[in-house]
């Protein structure tokens, strides 16, 4: 069953076609990797899949929604519930702690009225915890960050840890599709190994569909479909299992 369907996509930017006649079908539970030289339009393709950008021509169907016919507000709502996005430069909010950064994505899904308060009584101290907190803890455990990280700020974390928080934020709202734009581009080899294992875990254990733009062999290893984007056209990659 296909979850992402791109039919004859064209994207024009500054009177030049970046994407030409792209046809792509991604099934549920796939781990898709897109490679290609810089400037080939990989990020644009990801933006179109996730509803951040709109194609000049063509049809995008993601999880049964026709993105090209949706308004700005509908797209916002769509991204909130169906898409998780991981960036190369992490983009954590520097003013918020780790747990607050993850809760950022959850605040939108659990409206104020539906939140369940969990009141913990310690000796003399009463802490109120939201349902978002529980979910954030669960997700952070999944990416391998323990309680000692929860109240740290992003500038107190290493690059790998920051990217883990970013992944946790992306999967916190339980999206069907996780999209990552060069997630290990800013990390060293050993850290990117760990990050790619987390991606594998998300794909296998949670059954999410992953679309990743990368050149990292660590991630390529786990992919079951590899595409190459060159001069705006997509073709099947050489690397396939």
């Amino acid at each position: 069953m296909s979850i992402i369907e791109l039919i004859d996509i064209y994207k024009k930017y500054n009177s030049k076609y970046i994407l030409k006649s792209i046809n792509l079908t991604i099934d549920k539970g796939d781990f898709v990797v897109i490679t290609g030289p810089s400037g080939a339009g990989k990020t644009t393709l990801l933006n179109i899949i996730s509803g951040i950008d709109k194609p000049t021509k063509g049809e995008v169907i993601v999880a049964g929604h026709r993105l090209s016919k949706m308004s700005e507000n509908e797209l916002t709502f769509f991204r909130r519930h169906y898409i998780g996005f991981v960036f190369q430069f992490f983009y954590l909010v520097p003013e918020l702690t780790v747990i607050e950064n993850v809760e950022l994505a959850l605040d939108l899904i659990y409206p104020e009225s539906e939140r369940i308060y969990v009141i913990e009584r310690k000796i003399g101290v009463r802490t109120i915890k939201y349902r978002t907190y529980e979910r954030a803890v669960k997700v952070l455990e999944l990416v391998g960050l323990g309680p000692e990280y929860y109240n740290r700020f992003p500038d107190q974390l290493s690059g790998g840890e920051q990217q883990r928080v970013a992944i946790a934020r992306a999967i916190a709202n339980n999206p069907q599709i996780l999209i990552a734009d060069e997630p290990t581009g800013n990390l060293d080899v050993r850290t990117s190994q760990k990050i790619s294992e987390i991606f594998h875990k998300i794909n296998k254990e949670l059954g999410k569909t992953l679309v990743v733009v990368t050149h990292d062999l660590n991630i390529l290893r786990y992919a079951n479909k590899v595409y190459q984007l060159e001069n705006g056209t997509l073709r099947k990659g050489v690397f396939e299992r």
């Binding site: 996730s50 951040i52 916002t76 991204r79 519930h81 898409i83 960036f87 939108l108 934020r169 709202n173």
Partner: peptide
């Protein structure tokens, strides 16, 4: 700027 972009990507309205 990037944080604004990320907030919008997560699904925060304008």
């Amino acid at each position: 700027r990037e944080i604004i972009g990320v907030l919008k990507t997560i699904g925060y309205p304008n």
